[in-house]
């Protein structure tokens, strides 16, 4: 092999390694990064909103042409930031749904399709607020977004949040159930060995089972409460609020289970 072909080969390998590294970095866009983007865009919106309020006050106070122009500009900027922030928030929610285990494929597909529709709607709405728009135009366009948000976006948000929260509770409960099975197996072994009193432990195991059952029941109640009617946008806030309370109760039961496990393990590790 002469020097030229060796140099070509080395360059080829270098390019191959570099591109594969760069590609893997692009793919590494996870929930953490998406969440950071959401926080950043929300901050930009918040700053723009503050500026909008200031300019609005000035315009209402002085009613000059200059103050009107400034108010118009601040409103346009704020609306752009708001819609962009909404899009980034929906994208973060989408990645969270994708990264959540124990969601059934149907549920995941359903939630993701709702989010995708909303994300694309806000994509197409991008830059719809024009510099030539009057205040009235801007208000009308903003009302369009408000209507969309109330009838579609909010529903997609709450459906996703409910499924994510519910799946996380389910995931923890499943892991605790598997711990319980292993503990019970060990307890049988200890009872056979007859070298440790397991009466107290057996009582706690009973309590663990009760709490796991309660958690399951609360989680089911959360879903029933949320999906009681057709998936209407009406009262979606209230329905999600109620479901959230049930899920919190389900999580509290799991925290109790966690406490019982600690007690059981401590008891097993201590001599009578």
């Amino acid at each position: 092999m002469n020097k030229k072909s060796l140099a070509v080969l080395i360059s080829f390998i270098f390019v191959l390694v570099y591109t594969s590294t760069a590609f893997s970095q692009d793919n590494a866009f996870d929930y953490k990064k998406a969440y950071n983007d959401h926080v950043y865009s929300l901050q930009l919106y918040s700053d723009a909103h503050d500026q909008y309020l200031i300019q609005k006050d000035k315009y209402l106070q002085f009613e000059t042409l200059a103050s009107k122009t400034d108010a118009q500009e601040a409103t346009r900027e704020m609306l752009n930031r708001r819609d962009e922030s909404l899009r980034v928030y929906l994208s973060a929610l989408r990645i969270k749904v994708m990264e959540t285990d124990l969601l059934t494929i149907e549920t995941q597909q359903d939630v993701l399709s709702q989010l995708d529709i909303e994300i694309s709607w806000y994509e197409t709405q991008k830059n719809k607020y024009l510099e030539t728009d009057s205040l009235e135009d801007l208000i009308n366009k903003s009302n369009e977004t408000m209507s969309r948000y109330e009838t579609h976006t909010k529903l997609a948000i709450y459906n996703s949040l409910l499924e994510v929260n519910s799946a996380e509770v389910l995931e923890i409960r499943t892991e605790q159930e598997s711990i319980l099975i292993r503990l019970e197996e060990k307890l049988i072994e200890i009872e056979e060995n007859k070298n440790k009193n397991t009466q107290k432990i057996a009582t706690w195991v009973g309590d663990v089972k009760i709490e796991l059952e309660q958690s399951k029941a609360q989680e089911e109640l959360a879903k029933t409460f949320y999906y009681d009617e057709k998936q209407s946008y009406k009262n979606v806030d209230k329905r999600y609020g109620g479901a959230f309370d049930y899920l919190e109760l389900a999580l509290t039961s799991l925290e109790k289970v966690d406490g019982y496990f600690k007690e059981i393990l401590q008891e097993i590790k201590t001599a009578d």
Binding site: Y35, A71, R82, L86, I139, N143, L161, N165, V169, Q176
Partner: peptide, 29 residues
């Protein structure tokens, strides 16, 4: 069990990182 204990503290239900942001839709002058 320790791992699960840590997972319990980091669920979305507790952290509420993705709670609905309060956007201002009522634009009026």
């Amino acid at each position: 069990s320790i791992e699960i204990g840590e997972a319990l503290d980091s669920v979305e239900l507790k952290k509420a990182e993705l709670r609905e942001p309060g956007y201002d839709f009522e634009i009026d002058f």
